[in-house]
């Protein structure tokens, strides 16, 4: 097939299969996205993050853990492009490996949070009544609780570590997702096609799973992408307060925290991982912003 024919197939007015229709939608989305230069920049940054994480062992010039007290606090130079930290570890290598930590946190939080939010929100919205009341009151309580402090408390309870930080962040991030899913469900619930499905005798679970959930997914994806940066920042904040990854794990927030002692004389130790957090956050935000324009034209 030539490119033109592929395009025609993708854009067919009457797709012959579900797969064709879906791919067509994706293609349109990608096409729209590529017209937004900022979103492309975002995509490039996120792709770079994934690549760096995947190729960390090849990109790193040193071991991220290897200490050398003789060569500590070195400024950026040929042997150490980003300099060394207070224990003589190569900062470039640590930042590169840190991409893995960041990526793991973001992905895992998203994987945990979206389904929880979706489940709570759609159930509350679909069933209404006391189910809605109970679920939404619980959501409200979590919303009223100071988020970072709750996350701090949870990590303090669970002990520091990446997994626990992920759990704590997930635990404090789901309520907005539940709200969004509920709002979407409320509008969908009343629509004619749901009534039709219900008349056909579909069970509530079937209606929820087969018809409502898929319709909520796109707005959740936008929200997740937009939230990625926020998640990265909370994770880095926990790391900064000493509650994220355990040393010597090269977590960027913790690296900033370690480097703050040296900010005045060895600026690179805190500044470079901080810049990495910023860059990746920006990447996700640019991408999310573009995605929102594509997937959710109402919010333009």
């Amino acid at each position: 097939m030539t490119a033109a024919r592929v395009r025609a197939w993708l854009l067919a007015d009457a797709p012959a299969s579900r797969a064709q229709a879906r791919l067509g939608r994706v293609y349109l989305g990608v096409a729209a996205l590529s017209k937004n230069p900022l979103a492309v920049v975002g995509l490039v940054i996120v792709a770079a993050l994934v690549l760096v994480a995947a190729l960390a062992p090849r990109l790193a010039t040193h071991s991220p853990y290897g200490q050398d007290l003789e060569r500590r606090l070195r400024p950026p130079e040929d042997a150490h492009r980003f300099g060394t930290d207070q224990l003589g570890r190569d900062i470039l290598s640590r930042v590169v490996y840190g991409a893995r930590v960041t990526l793991a946190i973001v992905v895992l939080v998203a994987v945990i949070v979206a389904p929880i939010g979706l489940a709570v929100g759609t159930v509350a919205g679909y069933f209404g009544g006391w189910v809605d009341g109970v679920l939404m009151r619980v959501t409200d309580i979590f919303m009223a609780f100071p988020r970072l402090i709750l996350a701090l408390a949870l990590v303090a309870v669970l002990g520091p570590g990446i997994v626990n930080a992920i759990l704590a962040i997930a635990f404090t991030t789901w309520p907005p997702y539940a709200r969004i899913a509920r709002a979407e469900t409320l509008t969908i619930r009343e629509s004619d096609f749901i009534a039709a499905v219900r008349l056909q005798g579909a069970s509530p679970i079937r209606v929820l799973w087969g018809h409502i959930v898929p319709l909520c997914v796109s707005s959740l994806i936008v929200r997740v992408t937009l939230d990625m940066a926020g998640i990265i920042l909370v994770a880095a904040g926990l790391g900064f307060l000493g509650l994220g990854a355990r040393p010597p794990e090269p977590e960027w927030g913790a690296m900033v925290s370690e480097g703050r002692q040296f900010l005045l004389d060895q600026w690179w130790i805190a500044t470079i991982p901080g810049a990495a957090i910023f860059l990746v956050g920006l990447g996700f935000n640019l991408l999310g912003d573009g995605l929102r324009d594509v997937l959710d034209p109402k919010a333009r």
Binding site: L87, A156, P160, G242, P247, P248
Partner: peptide, 30 residues
């Protein structure tokens, strides 16, 4: 404990004990 100098001492010990095969997992806390 969190903070200097414990973090750095702990990481140095982790590194040197590692050289003899003792795999140290650090547990920093308040």
């Amino acid at each position: 404990a969190n903070g200097t100098p414990f973090m750095d001492i702990a990481q140095s010990i982790q590194s040197t004990m590692g050289q003899a095969g003792i795999k140290v997992e650090l547990v920093p806390a308040d």
